[in-house]
Design a protein around this nucleic acid. Structure first.
Lengths: 361, 361
DNA sequence: TTCATGTTTGAGACCGGTCTCACAAGAAAA
DNA sequence: TTTTCTTGTGAGACCGGTCTCAAACATGAA
């Protein structure tokens, strides 16, 4: 199957022989542990250089138990949100000499489980996960190494977690919409809800999703909007069918006049769908989205966004996890990073409000 | 340093003891190699399940020499081009049960070298690299495992390579510009040129960069444009200073009337800079960019792009590399994938051409 | 000079798998 | 019945590092 293993790779023993010392001594000099006299160390190092010795991390990991790498499981690397967060993680990791094994769950629990299994088998020292679902988290509880959660908290899982102030962010954004006179406001997310949603927020375990919906509903309630729940749409992922659902929503008689999108991918899809329907932003529909993605500032009109500190999000989890790897055992921390709303031009007064001359401010 | 290694992990020996067979037999049943009787296998598997045995991949890799993972070194995961390509790679890899260790070079050779060292030490079975520079490739030649190049070919390195038809793509795009009457056309790239560029194409070793410039110059020559070389701008990476250089370019007296951008990140920066200068696209400046990024279709006007099969690019290298890992030893392949130009609204007639009524077609 | 202390070194076990080899037992061939 | 395969199993070496332990040597105090 494999080419005659051409790797007659140089080992400590080879170096030891060359330097005329014992394997143990050579290993000490090479590995930088234990005590070795200056002269011997120099000799060993020279021999190593001459032989072009390269340590085998795998073998090292075997005995130390530490692999020097962490696993990161995200929903979708293609989503700029995740790629930026991953960037934050890997920058921190590299600085600590740790490397990152990346896995995509595609937001599917089964893929997530499998990824965990594989990464654990690879003996990663720690794991950073963005849980795809909330209901099924047994596999997360079983993880034997330090675990940290990124962007999505799980109340039942008491581990280091970094999220943003989702509820408040959603509240502020939605309020911006209600204050512009909107009464039919939709919240559109790619998250998939297992089961039916009928106002039972408690059934949503993924913090990000639940908190945002809670904030959304808070604002609606505050404005006296009833049955806001019916305008919450799940499962608007990257697919033809999701796009079709969006078009249907926009073309329905009692379509929303404002939309809050849960991430920039969904928002882009919405933006296209809105245009496809011939609607104008913000004339016919107002739009706000989570994540200040590249494109949101160059569209016409530019989109008002909830700016999340994505890079910092990644940076923070990585720091938390690495600190724990180093032996820190204070109780798990739950860091909540603040968001800011960047107002651009995608929010306008509700057509109805204008028509009725209501709510002017 | 580390918590008292709480990992009294279950090993084959434990399972063997439980199943009352020898370690060797248990290993055979568990590892699925050699011959084991049905009954014994069942017993071992049951014992393994009871004990919740999980194989240690590291140990396995040690003896087999295979680690079951490949390393991928890209310039910048944040760039949608790379994240999409990585997606292609990891999809293929997962299907083969191989996982991906990702590293960012930040387009810096030193980081690239270091990443290679680390990944080699981790005993990756193969490596996919997007070489940051072209001059300094000694470290790539020294790589002991199968290597494949993504998006950028290196003539001196005879390994599996997947690129796109850069020269022809640049030629067609530039021709589109010359045919619209443009005479001052700039090519803007993030690539950094070591040394000075004075028409010495041969000094550029990175195929992608060289081929595109060649195509660009072909088209210029074809249109009788002289000294097109002076309008080639390197180093427009993601930075404040790069942006400043762009602004300066756009504000100069003899600014270009059309620009070809080498990737969507540069193009977005250009788009913003052009707007910042108060110019209209395509009225004052025409723009074409490589890579059909998300945002290019939603700007006003939407941007004409050279659509590269990015996902396929990743998919192909991964397939090539994995095939080689499996023992295939036919000579290295160089696959060139075709691109198509998606015409949108960012190309207009040159202001001069309009003024002089020239070149109408 | 002798004993205590400290430094440097080598021998060999160990990590958790794979794999070679020898041997036993049953099946098929002589 | 004896010989030859075939199949299933166990003992133990091995991968390439780390690490424990004790021996060898050096140094300083008594």
């Amino acid at each position: 199957m494999k080419r005659p293993p051409k790797a007659p790779s140089i080992t400590v023993s080879d170096v030891a022989r060359q330097a005329k010392v014992s394997k143990a001594t050579a290993a000490r000099a090479l590995g930088g542990y234990g005590r070795v006299s200056k002269t011997v160390r120099a000799a060993v190092l020279e021999a190593a250089k001459a032989l072009d010795y390269r340590p085998n991390e795998l073998a090292r990991s075997m005995t130390t138990g530490r692999s020097g790498s962490i696993g990161v499981i995200v929903g979708d690397i293609e989503n700029p949100f995740f790629s930026l967060a991953v960037r934050g993680i890997s920058d921190v990791a590299r600085r600590s000499g740790i490397n990152v094994i990346l896995a995509n769950s595609g937001e599917e629990v089964e893929a997530e489980k499998s990824a965990i299994r594989v990464l654990m088998a690879k003996q990663v020292d720690g794991l950073i996960v963005t849980p795809a679902q909330s209901g099924d988290i047994a596999h997360l509880k079983e993880i034997a190494c330090p675990l940290a959660l990124l962007d999505r908290a799980l109340p039942e899982l008491d581990v280091d977690t970094v999220t943003v102030d989702d509820r408040n962010a959603a509240l502020r954004a939605t309020r911006m919409l209600t204050q512009a006179g909107h009464r039919r406001i939709a919240y559109v997310t790619a998250a998939v809800l297992s089961g039916d949603f009928r106002g039972a927020e408690s059934s949503i375990n993924t913090s990000t999703v639940r908190e945002r919906i809670l904030g959304f509903l808070d604002a609606c309630r505050e404005a006296g909007i009833e049955e806001a729940e019916r305008d919450i749409h799940f499962g608007s992922g990257r697919s033809e069918s999701a796009h079709a659902v969006l078009l249907q929503l926009l073309r329905s008689a009692d379509r929303p006049t404002a939309i809050l999108a849960s991430d920039s991918v969904v928002a882009l899809d919405l933006f296209k769908a809105i245009r496809e329907c011939g609607f104008g932003i913000p004339r016919d529909i107002s739009l706000i989205t989570f994540h200040d993605a590249d494109w949101t500032s160059v569209t016409t009109p530019p989109i008002t966004v909830i700016d999340q500190p994505v890079y910092a999000l990644g940076k923070s989890v990585a720091e938390l996890l690495i600190r724990r790897l180093k032996g820190d055992d204070r109780p798990p921390e739950r860091i909540v990073l603040p968001t800011t709303i960047i107002e651009r031009m995608s929010v306008g007064r509700s057509p109805e409000a204008i028509g009725q001359g209501l709510n002017r401010s």
